[in-house]
Design a protein around this nucleic acid. Structure first.
Length: 515
RNA sequence: GCACCAUUCGUCUAGGGGUUAGGACGCCGCCCUUUCACGGCGGUAACACGGGUUCAAAUCCCGUAUGGUGUACCA
């Protein structure tokens, strides 16, 4: 496949929300395309109408947009190989299936669901290892290989439902080189005669996938490992058609954090973290929605960075972990993708988000806060909001924690953290606070530093260590026992507000003074 | 059951014949800080097992075990 333009595709099924694994597959395809100056294509694989879910397609589109995964060709952007929905390509597939039938590489089968079930039961009873429709069993079934030609013709003409199955050779070795795993060899005998065309006239995944990848000139098939077992069938199909096979790269799966199995859509709510990039609402059950990373306050750059590193790393002894999208594109290579599944770790995503949040300009961070301020009808200047962001950015993991953690800047506390009051609200503290607010009033040149010096002088005066009463002062001013630098808080609030808050605390808590 | 794939700290991973087996997350400790954090420093902890090949194996080969995926007219 050298000297050919790199064209890769992400081919999801619109059967629900796109989950983490899918996003990562799309991401790797995208990084590979950009790295190699190729094209990124999105194809909707909606050949199973029974599983179609309303809204899933829009969700996929929005998710990719949020992640910054840009598409060169898609149902929405169009392209030279349109349409990009398999349901809209339906008429094309029969021609190819027919070609295989004509060449004796596929055949019609008329077996009903009951007959198939009976066959499997029979084989199971006979202790046949794998009850499959294959090179052996096909001769006992109702198909164009066993039925007389004129009867086949009659059945077809009468409109009797049928499928087209691939005729897998008896004893052949099928080999292909996987870019992640190396050479994979499979005996044809272990592959069954998979259905290519369903009785509703739609192709199965296998046929549609191979035909479309060929027609769309896909150079590299990068997809999840769950496809590895059927890859030999696809290779056989390419051979039957006489087409060059694209290069394959089967990605290791993203596993559940607690041990076994691949991460599934349902794990999110069960395990206490999200498996969806965006909130997903099931249209058939609107009460049940699964939250997404975006809604939880994750920055998409952090999410993408994390995902890229789940199963891939740039190697070369690199210890850098924070990569912009441009850097990921620059460094990406299929060779550096790991072979084994990676367990999902929510702590690491949080860490990534923290890192990205810190590097965010205050103006951007301020947007999170502004929404909440508006909700609470608090007016504050852009400048002062950004000051708060600067003070808070190193203490939070999520943007939407900002309000929660910085409320005391904007609102006079009405409640005081019980734990701190119990421990620290004693006569000593009250004495210090009382004198402190008096001294503060006299303070001509107010600033955080000067206020702190004043507090220090007061404690010295009363023969108390400043550290002893510090938390009481903090709780009086902010209502909570921990928060950002108190000096900075005092400076931001200003003299009058600080004095007012101390007065309020002294009054509110006058009956709580510990002996 | 059968087929295919995988296996380095709890987790993500680097390392691909000679390394004190490196980093990150988490956890723990210390330092900094007259407050809260950030931060800095340090600690904890891994080559699944058994055979080979070799002067030398985490690294190459073969088994075993464990785990994963697949085995639909789903994708």
């Amino acid at each position: 496949m050298e000297n050919q333009e790199v064209r890769v595709r992400f081919a999801p099924s619109p059967t629900g929300g796109l989950h983490l694994g899918g996003v990562r597959t799309a991401l790797y395809n995208y990084l590979f395309a950009r790295k190699n100056k190729g094209k990124m294509i999105l194809r909707i694989e909606d050949t199973d109408r029974t599983r179609f879910v309303e809204g899933a397609e829009a969700y996929i589109k929005e998710s990719l947009e949020w992640c910054g995964i840009e598409l060169d060709e898609s149902p929405w952007d169009g392209g030279d190989f349109a349409p990009y929905r398999q349901s809209e390509r339906k008429p094309m597939y029969m021609e190819y299936a027919q070609r295989l039938v004509d060449q004796g590489k596929a055949y019609y089968a008329f077996d009903t669901a009951e007959e198939l079930e009976a066959m499997r039961e029979r084989l199971k009873a006979a202790r046949v290892v794998a009850p499959q429709y294959n090179v052996i069993t096909r001769m006992t079934m109702k198909n164009s290989l066993t039925l007389p030609q004129d009867e086949v013709k009659k059945r077809l003409e009468s409109g009797e439902p049928y499928v087209i199955r691939i005729k897998v050779p008896r004893k052949e070795q099928i080999r292909f080189n996987d870019l992640v795993r190396g050479w994979v060899t499979v005996q044809s005998a272990s592959i069954d005669d998979k259905v290519l065309m369903k009785s509703d006239g739609m192709p199965t995944y296998h046929l549609a996938n191979v035909v479309d990848d060929y027609l769309m000139k896909i150079s590299h098939v990068i997809r999840g490992e769950e496809w590895l077992p059927s890859a030999p069938l696809h290779v056989l199909l390419y051979q039957y058609f006489g087409w060059n096979t694209p290069d394959f790269a089967h990605l290791p799966l993203i596993l559940k954090p607690n041990g076994n199995g691949k991460l599934s859509k349902r794990d999110g709510d069960k395990l206490g973290f999200s498996v969806f990039p965006l909130q997903w609402v099931d249209p058939s059950n609107p009460d049940k929605s699964s939250t997404g990373y975006r809604e939880q306050g994750y920055l998409s750059e952090a999410f993408v960075n994390f995902l890229a590193f789940l199963g891939w790393n740039p190697g070369k002894g690199s210890q850098k972990e924070i990569f912009t999208k441009a850097e990921l594109i620059e460094e990406f290579s299929i060779e550096r993708i790991g072979k084994s599944g990676a367990k999902f770790d929510i702590e690491k995503v949080k860490w990534y988000n923290q890192q990205y949040l810190r590097n965010l300009p205050n103006a951007e961070l301020a947007e999170f806060l502004k929404a909440d301020l508006q909700k609470h009808q608090i007016e504050e200047s852009q400048d002062r909001i950004e000051q708060v962001c600067e003070l808070m950015k190193e203490r939070i993991t999520f943007g939407n924690e900002l309000w929660q953690e910085s409320q005391y800047f904007f609102m006079t506390p009405t409640q005081y953290e019980e734990k701190v009051i119990k421990k620290k609200w004693n006569q000593q503290a009250v004495n210090v606070l009382t004198e402190f607010r008096l001294e503060l009033e006299k303070l001509a040149d107010f600033s955080g530093t000067n206020a702190k010096q004043t507090l220090y002088d007061v404690t010295q005066n009363q023969g108390i260590k400043m550290g002893k009463v510090m938390q009481a002062v903090r709780v009086a001013i902010t209502g909570v026992g921990s928060g950002t630098d108190l000096t900075a808080i005092i400076e931001w609030l200003g003299k009058d507000e600080v004095i007012a808050r101390i007065d309020t605390a002294l009054e509110t808590l006058k009956d709580r003074v510990k002996a």
